[in-house]
Design a protein around this nucleic acid. Structure first.
Lengths: 342, 342
DNA sequence: TTGTAAGCGTTATCAA
DNA sequence: TTGATAACGCTTACAA
């Protein structure tokens, strides 16, 4: 097996009888090099099959042009779209994206943060694991001036960039919509209250009930462990078996909402007449289920692009990072069959 | 903004009055260093907050411990699961995963391959863009002894690792299943015939028809551009409007199959009685649609793990890479409501 | 068991 | 406009 050797700037330099620094500059179109030399060098580089060694450049410049993305699970539609947005934006600017999945484990998240650091990523974009309380493992990035963006599942108390939707308003809108459809007893599916996004949506839910003079029944607030389909089925079945079942459900994700639809149908509960349901995220399943699921939009790709943009902008002109910049995106309710009573 | 300086092995060395090489070795538990020294060094490293600079190590060792993944779009459930499998396996072995999306564009694929090369990835795992004909942009990896694995959408004529399911058999089984349900006129939704996976499934479909003495009606083979929901809707509607419509559909992906179900329902065609449908991939939507979609399994996570394993094994003991190693995974038919007539 | 020194491929500084 | 040289932080012969 004879491997082709890597061509370096030295190879080009010696072939053209120039110095390596001239070659280096020419390849980056440095204006101090004459047009003629630049052309000659770039031509030779192409012919010889030169490929810059980004490793060496990174080491030298102490910047990797790499964005580390730390999320729970790629398979979640919201997260894969988020990554897609990040990747597109990063690519545009010549940055690479490296992916790390915490699988919603705090320990993994801590270790992966270390790994990203060791890899000297230029910036980090993170959506927290479900049960992360302590976020001190992110301090290392701040200490080094590495831009850090939390997206969607953000911590409550960390001074950095946050990108998320207006979750309070989202919860409020979704609940208001159900109220407008005539719902009087609205259940709410929520996730870990450590996660701001869930507690805020819940707060929006509560505020809407209050504004419309509906009593708050704590027993209708269902705290999920992982917002899975299975959990959604189980809890819906339980809810609908009660003496005084709800007539509406605002689920904080589509997976549990779809499970609710299926469970309700199995129990012959009419949707939306007897039970109006709205989810959140607008996952692909929302339009597949019958009746189609009303939901709140969660602009994943856009959030990815914005997150990456924050990182890239910061890298261009770093500021004191002892601040918090929150980007709140608007969210809309998409009304589909599962909640449309009129 | 005062940034913490990076601690290097030199900092540790001078603090402990040792040499940098001793520190370097101790940090990697090199047996030639005394237990006592190792402990002392590792303790100091921890206290001082040392983080290895992988960049420097990579440059020195000319290996990055990074696997480049080149795929069309992360959002596809099959691909995000594939990546997940790759990431988990890579993580285990201390490798990073960098993601590049071609968005099914041949030009992007060529450029991204270059970028991955410039980043000196240790290995590459790729699922081709829909319309990639020429695969010479991958030769650079072979020339350098960088392990290259094609997964799922593989080229026809490239000597390297291939990981895929037995697509011929998959197509055969799916078709056979429909025949066994009594279908006589089975339509087939297929993708670009440049992609082996689609042409092989089609070959399986044709072989099954032949084995069961059903005539092959070329007009029932539908060539899709992108296998999207929209395309599926349109083509199904057209098919069912014919004088002599099909009584079964074998769709090469679930998206188009689900679209077919929806379109058929809209036209009051009974599923599975009048039209039995089977898809492929077992995407999440398959169990959400009603009737639930029969489909062929596509073990994405497993394929990811295997692909990563091939890369890692090769890196452990490189061989002559002028060979082809095909890993064919088995696939099963999951019979659900959309095709179960008895 | 530990130390010295060279080198990985760039880029930046200074000098010519 | 170009060249010589040092440096980025690590690993690894080779020497002690």
């Amino acid at each position: 097996m004879t491997l082709k050797k890597d061509i370096t700037i030295y190879d080009i330099a010696s072939k053209l009888e120039l110095s390596s620094s001239t070659v280096s500059r020419a390849l980056r179109n440095n204006p101090s090099i004459s047009k003629k030399t630049i052309d000659k060098i770039q031509k030779a580089a192409k012919e010889m099959g030169y490929r810059p060694n980004k490793l060496a450049a990174s080491l030298r410049g102490n910047k990797t042009k790499t964005i580390g993305v730390l999320i729970s699970k790629i398979e979640r539609p919201f997260l894969s779209s988020l990554i897609s947005g990040i990747e597109v934006k990063a690519q545009e600017s010549g940055y690479n994206v490296i992916i790390a999945q915490s699988h919603d484990s705090y320990e993994d998240e801590v270790n992966l943060a270390k790994t990203l650091y060791s890899n000297r990523v230029s910036g980090v974009i993170c959506s927290l694991a479900m049960d992360t309380k302590d976020t001190s493992h992110f301090q290392q990035f701040i200490d080094k001036g590495i831009p850090l963006v939390f997206v969607d599942r953000v911590p409550r108390d960390f001074n950095t960039f946050l990108v998320m939707i207006d979750n309070f308003s989202a919860g409020y809108k979704a609940t208001k919509h159900l109220i407008e459809q005539g719902c009087k007893r609205i259940a709410h599916f929520t996730g870990s209250q450590l996660r701001y996004i869930y507690s805020e949506r819940k707060r929006g839910y509560i505020a809407a009930l209050k504004d419309y003079n509906l009593p708050l029944d704590e027993s209708l607030i269902c705290y999920f462990d992982n917002l899975s389909y299975k959990e959604g089925e189980k809890i819906t079945t339980e809810l609908l078996s009660r003496e005084n079942p709800p007539d509406g459900i605002f689920a904080t994700n589509d997976t549990s909402a779809v499970a609710a639809i299926k469970a309700a149908k199995k129990m012959n509960v009419k949707i939306p007449e007897d039970l109006a349901i709205i989810g959140f995220n607008d996952d692909p399943i929302a339009t597949i289920i019958e009746p189609q699921l009303s939901t709140g939009t969660h602009p994943a790709v856009k959030m990815g692009v914005i997150s990456a943009t924050k990182v890239l902008e910061y890298l261009k002109k770093p500021k004191n990072q002892d601040f918090m910049e929150i980007t709140l995106l608007n969210t809309d309710i998409i009304v589909r069959e599962s909640s449309k009573r009129k």
